[in-house]
Amino acid sequence: MDLYTLVKVAHVIGATVLLGTGAGIAFFMLMAHRTRDPALVAQTARVVVLADTVFTASAVILQPITGASLAHLAGYRLLSGWIGLSLALYVVTGLCWLPVVWIQVRLRDLAIQAAATDTPLPERYFRLFRLWFVLGFPAFAAVLGIVWLMVAKPSF
Rank of each mutant, 00 (worst) to 15 (best):
M1F: 10
L3A: 11
L3H: 03
L3M: 06
Y4K: 11
Y4W: 12
T5S: 15
V9I: 15
A10F: 12
H11W: 12
H11C: 12
I13D: 12
G14Y: 03
G14L: 04
A15D: 05
L18E: 03
L19H: 02
G22M: 05
G22N: 07
G22C: 07
G22S: 07
G24H: 05
I25P: 00
A26S: 11
A26T: 15
F27P: 07
F28L: 14
L30I: 11
L30A: 11
H33L: 02
R34E: 07
A39D: 09
L40P: 00
A42H: 11
Q43L: 14
Q43A: 12
V47W: 14
F55R: 04
A59C: 03
A59M: 00
A59H: 04
L62R: 04
Q63M: 14
G67T: 09
A71S: 11
H72E: 10
H72A: 10
G75H: 13
G75S: 10
R77E: 15
L78G: 01
S80D: 13
I83A: 06
I83P: 00
I83L: 12
L89V: 01
V91N: 02
T93P: 01
P99N: 01
V101C: 10
V101T: 13
R106G: 07
R106Y: 03
L107Y: 05
R108P: 07
R108Q: 13
L110P: 08
A111Q: 05
Q113L: 12
A116I: 07
A116E: 14
A116Y: 07
A116K: 09
T117Q: 14
T117A: 11
D118Y: 02
T119W: 03
P120N: 08
P120C: 04
P122A: 07
P122S: 10
E123F: 06
R124E: 15
F126Q: 08
F126A: 08
L128Q: 11
F133P: 01
F137A: 08
A139L: 04
F140G: 00
V143S: 04
V143D: 00
G145F: 11
M150K: 08
V151D: 00
V151K: 02
S155D: 06
